[in-house]
């Protein structure tokens, strides 16, 4: 009950600030440009059987979008409460810390997912206006959406954690970006030489691009699901502990 009330307020608050619209506009623009360029490429190369999803997620600029969005969404969630002092008002209402942390997390995650809606529109447009329409593989689309949600959950939890550490939104954003970059950076490990097979196996276990490639081909792998969910839960627990600690400090 308290969770639902807080969640509604968190999600709605994004639409009260200009940042949300700027991020939304930026995402839609970048996704639109990618989409246009990709369709051009596919037409020029005269692919017959390629999955649009598969090509889409192999496009490098796509990752910049993923990395850049999250810090902008999450930087204010706790920082602003500490800066304005509203955290005191919030935590003296009959709510538990867990409610607050989860509401902020799910609010941010929902907004993160909203930012991907333009792609869905682009793909729908492709379906409607090309003839013959390209084949639709629902398993690929569903798995890709699941992977983006899970990876987004992990990144958003890192952002929420960064935000609970500081009053300053800029610091929270930079910290979040750095943490996401480190997480994401592991996936490039395979390009380094002198890696033994165990290390490579570890890298592929945590590598988001590989997870997305698998999903894009319609292959379901339960390992990344376990990985993303467990790390997200762990980071949210850390967030709750820090929140409690900061409150007890006064």
């Amino acid at each position: 009950m308290a969770l639902w009330t807080l969640y509604k307020r968190e999600f709605n608050s994004y639409f009260h600030s200009a940042v949300a619209y700027v991020v939304l506009f930026g995402s839609a623009l970048i996704q639109g440009i990618f989409f246009y360029v990709l369709v051009q490429l596919i037409m020029d190369a005269n692919y017959k059987e390629a999955s649009v999803m598969q090509i889409f997620f192999n496009w490098p600029l796509f990752w910049i979008l993923l990395l850049g969005q999250v810090p902008l969404i999450t930087m204010r969630v706790f920082s602003e409460e500490f800066k304005l002092g509203t955290i005191e008002m919030l935590l003296t209402a009959p709510v538990r810390e867990w409610d607050v942390v989860l509401a902020k997390f799910f609010g941010a995650l929902t907004f993160f997912l909203v930012l991907w809606l333009p792609i869905a529109l682009d793909l729908t447009a492709l379906q409607l206006f090309s003839s013959p329409p390209p084949p639709v593989y629902w398993s690929q689309i569903g798995l890709t959406a699941l992977t983006i949600t899970l990876a987004g959950g992990l990144y958003v939890s890192l952002g929420v954690f960064a935000s609970v550490l500081t009053k300053n939104q800029i610091i929270a954003a930079v910290l979040c970006f750095a943490m996401i970059l480190v997480c994401f950076g592991f996936s490039f490990g395979k390009f380094f030489q002198h890696m033994n097979s165990t290390t490579l196996a570890w890298i592929s276990y945590v590598s988001l691009p590989e997870h997305l490639q698998n999903a894009g081909q319609g292959i379901f792998d339960s390992r990344p699901v376990v990985f993303y969910v467990s790390v997200t839960v762990f980071i949210l627990m850390l967030t709750k502990s820090v929140l409690e600690g900061r409150r007890l400090q006064g």
Partner: peptide, 26 residues
């Protein structure tokens, strides 16, 4: 409880804020 300096969510409207707080306070 009304804390010193009255921290409020400055992005909300008065009605919206009071309804939110009422809901939160069960």
């Amino acid at each position: 409880y009304m804390p010193e300096n009255v921290p409020l969510y400055t992005d909300m409207r008065v009605n919206e804020f009071l309804r939110f707080r009422a809901e939160l306070k069960k």
